[in-house]
Amino acid sequence: MSRPESAVVFRELGGPEVLSVEDASPRPVADNDVRIDVAAFALNRADLMFIHGEHYTIPAFPSRIGSEAVGTVTEIGKNITAFNIGDRVTSIPFYTTTDGVQGTTAVLPGDYLTLAPPELSDAEACSVWMQYLTSYFAFAEVANLGSDDTVLVTAAASSAGLGAIEVARALGARVIATTRTEKKRSLLLEAGASEVALVGVDDVGEVIDRTTDGKGVRVAFDPIGGESLGTYVHHLAPNAVIFGYGTLSDQQPVIPMAAMCRTQSVFHPYSMFNHVGRADERQRGVDFILERIGSGALRPRVDRVFAFDQVLDAYRYMESNEQSGKIVVQIG
């Protein structure tokens, strides 16, 4: 008989105030599923979008939340051959309308699990996949980034931004990063950025021209939306790709059509969830990242760890945008 569990649940749209930790009845393990006792889970901005009703996945109430966790396998479906009871595993982000991993236990599809890298702590192990796969699919699978390219990463001190810097460097490209605060400049340089532009102080276009000898950036990785593209659109390389993967400004992206026509550039509305469901792309991404974690080339950055009874505080901290790296909740 399945034991009772606690889970993070919401029943209406809104901010962190709609979340609560409640007793929940574990759902049965289907043939292709795995149940884990959760040791830690990571928060993502997609979770905030989900509870606000701004994610393209629409919740069905009452809904659990979250897609990144690390834990120990306690039950497996009859079609599962890759994992055994007692394995330490970590989840690759996925989305359903009612399920989620933020709780004491979770049931996940086996296709979206990997063995947790032994060199990583629990907090690090649940922070791998969104941090790195988000940019991997954009850079490697779509843009075919290489050593001749320069990438612009805006709002680069986020976990996805830091991951983008590291993935771009692993593919041989140079990176120009932007941030709002001087205190994050050294962090971005340490992560591998060649140059850092301070928003509101530095001229982003001038930094791009200086860093690329006037050639421009071929890829931009931009979660800001609003007028962000206009700050660098005149400094794009021919056939550039702008990956718009968020709206931190709370405004939809403004697309300067004429300026983009001059360089035949493309604005690509982007989500890693449009790629992670493709088994071949997912496996290439997993192999790419695990190989580099094993060699020490990649190491997920954790900003802060909260206790399970502080989960609402963790979400409020995420809304503050003060973090530099992953926000994690530890169980027990």
Score class of each variant (00 low, 15 high):
D309L: 07
E12N: 06
D203L: 01
A314Y: 04
K78Q: 12
F306L: 01
S265A: 15
E319F: 11
F288A: 10
L145F: 04
R292M: 08
F50G: 01
G192A: 04
L171C: 04
L48Y: 03
R316E: 14
G103P: 02
V21S: 09
V34P: 00
E141M: 08
L13S: 11
S121K: 10
S25C: 06
V254F: 11
L312E: 15
D280S: 12
A155G: 15
G205M: 09
E141N: 14
V302K: 05
E281H: 15
I165S: 03
G226A: 02
A140P: 08
G15A: 07
Q323Y: 02
S135F: 04
Q310W: 06
D31Y: 08
V266L: 15
R284A: 12
Y315K: 03
S63P: 09
R316G: 15
A69V: 13
L187T: 14
V89F: 10
R180T: 14
G294Q: 11
G332Q: 14
V70H: 09
A39D: 13
N144H: 15
A168V: 10
D202K: 02
A116N: 09
G277F: 03
G296H: 06
D111S: 14
V21K: 11
S121P: 13
A170Y: 12
P26D: 02
R185A: 06
A123Y: 04
A143G: 09
D280L: 01
N274W: 07
K326T: 05
S186W: 00
D222V: 00
D280F: 02
V207C: 10
V151L: 11
S91D: 12
S63T: 10
S271R: 13
P28C: 08
